[in-house]
Design a protein around this nucleic acid. Sequence first.
DNA 1: GATGAATGAGGATTCATTCAT
DNA 2: CATGAATGAATCCTCATTCAT
Lengths: 201, 201, 201, 201
Amino acid sequence: MTKRQENALITKQKLLDTAENLIKSNGLSSLSVEDITKIAGVAKGTFYVYFKHKEDIIAEICRGYFKEIELKITNTKNKNIIEKLTLYFINFMNAVEIYGINICREWIKSAIDPKTAFDNNGISKWQYDFNMLENILKTAIKNKELKKNTPIELLTHLIISQLYGMMTVWCMSDEVFEPKEWTKKFSKIQLKAILNDYIEG
Amino acid sequence: MTKRQENALITKQKLLDTAENLIKSNGLSSLSVEDITKIAGVAKGTFYVYFKHKEDIIAEICRGYFKEIELKITNTKNKNIIEKLTLYFINFMNAVEIYGINICREWIKSAIDPKTAFDNNGISKWQYDFNMLENILKTAIKNKELKKNTPIELLTHLIISQLYGMMTVWCMSDEVFEPKEWTKKFSKIQLKAILNDYIEG
Amino acid sequence: MTKRQENALITKQKLLDTAENLIKSNGLSSLSVEDITKIAGVAKGTFYVYFKHKEDIIAEICRGYFKEIELKITNTKNKNIIEKLTLYFINFMNAVEIYGINICREWIKSAIDPKTAFDNNGISKWQYDFNMLENILKTAIKNKELKKNTPIELLTHLIISQLYGMMTVWCMSDEVFEPKEWTKKFSKIQLKAILNDYIEG
Amino acid sequence: MTKRQENALITKQKLLDTAENLIKSNGLSSLSVEDITKIAGVAKGTFYVYFKHKEDIIAEICRGYFKEIELKITNTKNKNIIEKLTLYFINFMNAVEIYGINICREWIKSAIDPKTAFDNNGISKWQYDFNMLENILKTAIKNKELKKNTPIELLTHLIISQLYGMMTVWCMSDEVFEPKEWTKKFSKIQLKAILNDYIEG
DNA sequence: GATGAATGAGGATTCATTCAT
DNA sequence: CATGAATGAATCCTCATTCAT
């Protein structure tokens, strides 16, 4: 990589970091290209060297988060399906907690907004999460942890609802509780209840 | 009521209806006073006769929804706590379905946004829903349907998460399923699981 | 006067008083027909029964002040021209002090604004004051208090400048001094200096 | 300075000049960003590249005037205190005459309005003028032109009243006289009278 | 006389985006 | 690659005034 390319990367990262911090502290609604570039210490035009549209930087930031969570989850090799899902939940909410409530708010907004719900591959966040959870359950059937007649679609649906329900309510309540802690209780009661009938043996 | 007052009411309702329809079809982000008045067939200034700020009409539309749901729920005289909660869920999602996905999206957005989450009495949507559900559970304890040691706060929390989880996921999935139908399945499995240990007798 | 005519007068006075109070407390720039009528407890349209234009009520309020001052001054039967002018000054500033700084500000603004400087008779405030002072001086010549060769125009001009200079500076200084008190000192030094050469005998 | 920066300066100056001309011809009350930019031949948005708010351009125009007058006055090295003050008066009114009556009107309005009377350093126009004159008098005492017991505050006050009185009356009279000419007569009579008792020797 | 709903011109401000340098 | 001046569509909101009742 030439020195120039290196500098370019640094500039881009500076923009990404600045935008992320701004969202974390003020939310997305007041995010402006003006602010991002001013704080990043570059000219307004520079923004458009790296991002064709303002929304592109938001998408890229979110993609970063999703990737991070995905990595954590796929790397866990748990035997027990309940433990695995619990970990999924906890990792998810852990990430959410770290990113902060404003990011989480934008996350939900972007997830429910048809304009922003699709990532670059044309797959919606919804589908993405759905597939991921579905795979975990399918694997569990293969591994004979779950019965063959497990209603995968229904259960996936239920679990995702739990997950986003937790997030949404956390945002609604304005951080009155610790997401990680609650998720534990949550998982304990709900996951068991959901899967109870289908656990093998 | 004089003829004039009647006409004024009609005008206001026309504005409310137009705004609601616009939100339903295009979402709130592109809602403009210009459009509302143009479609309603009145002058731009007329809008400000009835609403001091643009947001006020949105608030009034939402308030209408909340009130409607509240009415339906408080009017149900069910014996069984599970049936009562199920009805709560179904009424809620039924309303949601009627209002349409765009209203539902704005609803969630407004519920998680600290700037708009508070109604005129300074109570957040979250607290409002929380109180309402908590009361249902408390009444159930009084009626000896639920055990005295029922962890009300925890359960209320779980149930609300379910509710908002359903809504959020419905919006995410871009209406791929019927909320009412799903809610039935949902309630059946989840509510029973949640309350199982605490049902008396 | 019929009962109806009486009520009409009351309504008009209510509007005048309300407008005056509003100007006193908030200045003229924020004065609106909306506020006047709302506070006066009448409908917006009622305003236009009594005043063709918003500015008309302002003009009428000011005219009231001017009339009041005029009355005080013309009623004084002082022998001495210096005493008479001193009284003119003091009455003027006394009125100004009573009306308050915000009225005074609007007064100056209206006096220097060509759009509002003319009263209903087409005479500007400037001409009005000029004529009044000129008459006082002319009378003094007739009464042989002042010499025949007194340069009336010049002196009138000087005196008016003093008067408005006091007012303007009072407004500029944001009331840091008592206009009445200052006017006394002011008159003592300045009037004597101005007239000194022309006093008879 | 690069060509671009030069062009930017030209654009800004164009805006300032246009605004100034508009005020000169129509007064400030009807000044709009729309007009300024349209006449200056730039886009509306360009205005906001150089001025955060509409009022900022007005402030900058006025500041220019004040600075100019200040310069002229501080640069005069007169021996005689009366001559010096006379020059102060004449310079002041000369500037006023050049700027025109509408600017002068806005000047007075801005000087008496508590919202706009303060410059960037938080000093009111009143204090500013007061300090400047006071210094002239103090220097005169040091130079033994004026007696030690000269009541500086009182005299400063009187002189400023004269100055603003002249201006106010000029605006009121709608330019019926030449300010410069009048100021000469004015100074001759008034300044002498004011200072007479305190001139040394 | 009194009402108050309706008007609509007018004005300030924002901000994503472009492009010549 | 970087700049930052310029753009102009978009939008909210104000308010004096009219007029049918």
